[in-house]
């Protein structure tokens, strides 16, 4: 090979190596566009309340990834009205959020009954099928299926279970008219920031202490609230 040929090969390989390094660095440093955030600030006028609708399902079923048996939250996309398998939201700061959660899963006693007490909501209460409550005794009735909790905002609400002996418990999201409880509550978002929310019922069946699997995977039993000004 001629000198020119060898030189251009060397330079070419060098440039490829540099490009690879730059690409690796950039993709490592760039957090990317966070996927799966549902934006509730679109068309939102300052100070107006925001409505969010979630549902919890005992097993998400086919059509939402590789874990059809996992327990999961679902979110109703405010733009399309469709139920989506995303649990992160962009919410306006200093606003009231009206939350409605349709709970389709059965329940059990809480590991820590502390989460049976409604906390951090406006009025320190929530409603269960239209009836206000402040404390739910998880050792009675159908127990608690999941909780919706935002530790950074002090919010925690128990989601009361449906009768576990029913034969028509929803096993394929979205759940529609199958047996469920409707829990509503309102809370304030406060200052801008990123908050996580999670369920405090160790509901990941088959995992150590029930806290692996769905409890430890984004879009199942937890997500982020990005509160923006």
């Amino acid at each position: 090979m001629s000198i020119i040929g060898r030189l251009s090969t060397a330079i070419g390989l060098f440039l490829v190596a540099v490009a690879l390094i730059v690409w690796a660095l950039v993709s490592f440093l760039d957090p990317g566009t966070p996927g799966g955030y549902t934006d509730y600030t679109v068309g939102h006028s300052a100070g107006a309340p925001v409505s969010v609708n979630l549902q919890t399902v005992g097993s998400i079923g086919n059509g939402y990834g590789s874990h059809p048996t996992w327990v999961s939250y679902m979110q109703k996309d405010p733009a399309t009205g469709k139920w989506i398998h995303d649990t992160s939201m962009i919410l306006p700061a200093n606003s009231v959020i009206h939350m409605t959660i349709d709970q389709y899963d059965s329940g059990s006693p809480l590991r820590n009954q502390e989460w049976g007490q409604v906390q951090g909501t406006i009025g320190s209460d929530a409603t269960l099928n239209g009836k206000s409550f402040k404390v739910y005794d998880s050792y009675t009735g159908n127990g608690v299926g999941h909780t919706f909790a935002v530790p950074g905002l002090g919010v925690s609400v128990p989601l009361i279970g449906v009768n576990g002996n029913l034969t028509n418990i929803c096993a394929q999201a979205p759940c529609g008219t199958l047996p469920h409880n409707v829990i509503t509550f309102s809370f304030r978002t406060g200052a801008p920031g990123s908050y996580n929310w999670q369920c405090f019922v160790p509901c990941a069946l088959g995992y150590l202490y029930g806290n692996g699997g769905a409890m430890s995977t984004l879009n199942y039993m937890g997500g982020f609230l990005k509160v923006v000004a």
Partner: peptide
């Protein structure tokens, strides 16, 4: 109202990881 439902104060608590009948809690 909620304190009345808590287990008696103790130094440690043992949640049952397996429980009966596939539950995560010992006995309800």
């Amino acid at each position: 109202a909620n304190t009345a439902l808590l287990p008696a104060f103790a130094w440690t608590y043992t949640p049952d990881a397996n429980g009966a009948a596939g539950g995560y809690y010992p006995d309800g």
